[in-house]
Design a protein around this nucleic acid. Sequence first.
DNA 1: CCAAAAGTGTTAGGCTTACACCCATGC
DNA 2: GCATGGGTGTAAGCCTAACACTTTTGG
Lengths: 234, 234
Amino acid sequence: MTDHYSVSDKHLVAVDCVIFGYDIYDKELKLLLIKRKFEPEFGKWSLPGGFVKKDESVSGAACRVLYQLTGLAELYMEQSYTYGDINRDTGGRVITITHFALINAYQLDPVMIEASSAHWRSISRIPKLIFDHEKIVKKAHRQLIERIKVKPVGFELLPEKFTLVQLQQLYEAIYLRTIDKRNFRKKIISMNLLEKLDEKEKETSKKGAFYYKFIPARYDDFRRKGFYFNLDVQ
Amino acid sequence: MTDHYSVSDKHLVAVDCVIFGYDIYDKELKLLLIKRKFEPEFGKWSLPGGFVKKDESVSGAACRVLYQLTGLAELYMEQSYTYGDINRDTGGRVITITHFALINAYQLDPVMIEASSAHWRSISRIPKLIFDHEKIVKKAHRQLIERIKVKPVGFELLPEKFTLVQLQQLYEAIYLRTIDKRNFRKKIISMNLLEKLDEKEKETSKKGAFYYKFIPARYDDFRRKGFYFNLDVQ
DNA sequence: CCAAAAGTGTTAGGCTTACACCCATGC
DNA sequence: GCATGGGTGTAAGCCTAACACTTTTGG
């Protein structure tokens, strides 16, 4: 009998990463983009990516790409979608499994970023990207919006200590709309997942705003009891 | 400079299809499974699948697999998830992009099914499947549940004319729980997407139940006006 | 006339939304 | 003392969930 495995076509398989970051100072959701370092499309803006190797899993490849770019392991990462059109990459037939990652921009080593010629670009001012990368970004952003509504992943984008104002601004930056302050606070506080610290953030106001921190263990506990996170608020 | 494309590893890439069907008579959600026709795992239960060829897109490959198995084109199909662990397939390193499809089991040619040694199996009595196919099925089923809550795709699984009782039973079969009859009817009727026919289904009751049909054009119209489908009901 | 399935409304409570003023402090 | 941003409560309305009886008709 024929060996279906050995007679079948093989393909280049890549991973591309939509890396989201957030800047509490200019209050914008950002993407980590690179200038492509090889042909075709040398020097053009692109998502960070790489080919999947023989001896690594697809998610392993995504982690490697992230690690090589940022020096960070253990980031929040999720598979987004797989793009497999024949001519999506002008350099050859490449199937790409895209992922999105959330990183706290403050953990990031600026030297590393510089070395990779990577740059943060605001989600609302994305430059022209190669291939189908703009479509990939749009889809990942829609998925991020759905995700932060129902899973406490927004904290991955913030420093460990943050104010409620900062948390709300993060959600506004992702949703790309404003949120009612009182409704937002009521909802997040009522979930009982935050610890209010005694310390205040005093850079942005005279009165100062209390810092909070997210308690992952409490979320895990509540989840086991059937609780659902929800920050879908007007 | 090195050509990153030509020096990179290539992989076998497959598609696997989780094909959902529904039987209005035994009121169960079913999966179309096949007995594998080559080694390894010859003769074992498996999802229908196939390798992606050089000259076809990933979604094209999924359509081909579906068409070869069922003779049907233009089915509802959606990409589910990509599985890329190194040893997930014992026959070799294969990355698979899974899809789920919804088919109206009555359109299906039984001869075709027979020829492919395919069989419908109830979702609640899935046999042991090869590789990671059980995990694939679970994820696809969860995605189907989320999808039919917010998109009118359930009608793909029913004949063109159906009763409200049948529609509710379909939702119950997918959700794997009961739904309150009055709440369900109120909600689906209030969406104004169904046309009530004059004709009655009289096989299952003496009184008979009115047939309805789904009006896709009305859904498209409402969607454009910002309406959201929702059948997440208790 | 009776068994079997179809069909129908109402109410209570919870959740979402909308909305405006006081507080604390540095300058 | 005033400008700036932080922080707080309530009421209306909508949506969801719970719940039981009547209708129709073939046999």
